[in-house]
């Protein structure tokens, strides 16, 4: 999927230990360097996805997140800091990621994903990680992922629980297959520990790395759910909905 871009000696030194991973190696690292990922919001979940992908040597991150840093962000949004209160979140994210990996290309968009901008954002990348707190944003992203045939890692959390699946348009269920309409019970604000959003964020970053580098078994056609309250993890099969209004006619 991603282009393979030769590594510099500095990059070989930085990524040496992960290039020892079976089935990944230098070929996988070159694919990551040539790859681009869109992260829809870099909040509690997306911050960790972005941080892990930056550390792993992804070539380009497109970050979409509106608004300024607030005090209530700071228990979980690890790319936001006290000294950036009142200033744009994507700028905070960009400087923190550049501190970690100065080789990283970042496209910082100070907007949340919407029906208006989703197509243009998805066009820029090889893969999407959806970390938005509102179903409306997720639905807009899902529609474009299906239309443009881009893999989408769909991950979310609530309280001490989380769910994650990796959608490949035309092959596996899309978000609308699973959730055809916004659940009435979902509200904009929800209970969250950073360690929970961070756990599912790390899993999401690993899903992106596996899909982009072409190794391992991503959660395609599977949904992983877990509850850190009692450490229950479940991996279950999920199915496409032939009547899905988004991907039902996509083969």
């Amino acid at each position: 999927m991603s282009k393979r871009i030769p590594l510099t000696d500095e990059e070989r030194a930085v990524y040496e230990w992960q290039m020892w991973v079976d089935d990944f190696g230098e070929a996988g690292q070159k694919k990551l360097k040539g790859a681009s990922v869109l992260i829809s919001r870099v909040g509690g979940l997306g911050s960790v996805v972005a941080y892990e992908l930056a550390a792993a040597g992804i070539g380009t991150l497109v970050l979409a997140h509106a608004g300024n840093v607030k005090s209530s962000d700071l228990n979980r949004q690890l790319l936001m800091t006290h000294d950036w209160l009142g200033k744009p979140r994507v700028e905070s994210a960009e400087r923190r990621l550049k501190d970690l990996n100065p080789r990283l290309n970042i496209v910082a968009v100070a907007e949340n994903v919407s029906e208006e901008n989703a197509a243009g954002l998805v066009e820029q990348v090889d893969l999407i990680v959806d970390c938005a707190p509102l179903f409306e944003e997720r639905f807009a992203m899902n529609r474009q992922a299906v239309l443009q045939r881009k893999p989408l890692v769909e991950c979310a959390m609530f309280d001490l629980e989380a769910s994650i699946t990796t959608a490949l348009p035309g092959e596996t269920p899309c978000l609308a297959c699973l959730t055809p309409e916004k659940p009435a019970a979902w509200t904009r604000e929800f209970p969250v520990f950073g360690a929970v959003s961070g756990t599912v964020g790390c899993i999401a970053a690993m899903e992106a790395i596996k899909v982009l580098a072409g190794f391992g078994e991503p959660l395609t056609g599977k949904m992983l759910t877990f509850d850190l309250r009692d450490m229950t993890f479940s991996r279950r099969s999920i199915t496409r909905n032939p009547a899905c209004r988004v991907c039902g006619n996509v083969a």
Binding site: L45, C131, P133, L134, M157, S163, P183, T239
Partner: peptide
């Protein structure tokens, strides 16, 4: 395994049915 409400899904003694309301926390 996921089932749709419209699916005919035979049940057996001891089966576990999991019910989940989708979440979107990020």
């Amino acid at each position: 395994c996921q089932v749709n409400a419209s699916d005919s899904c035979p049940l057996s003694d001891g089966d576990e049915i999991t019910l989940m309301s989708p979440i979107s926390g990020g």
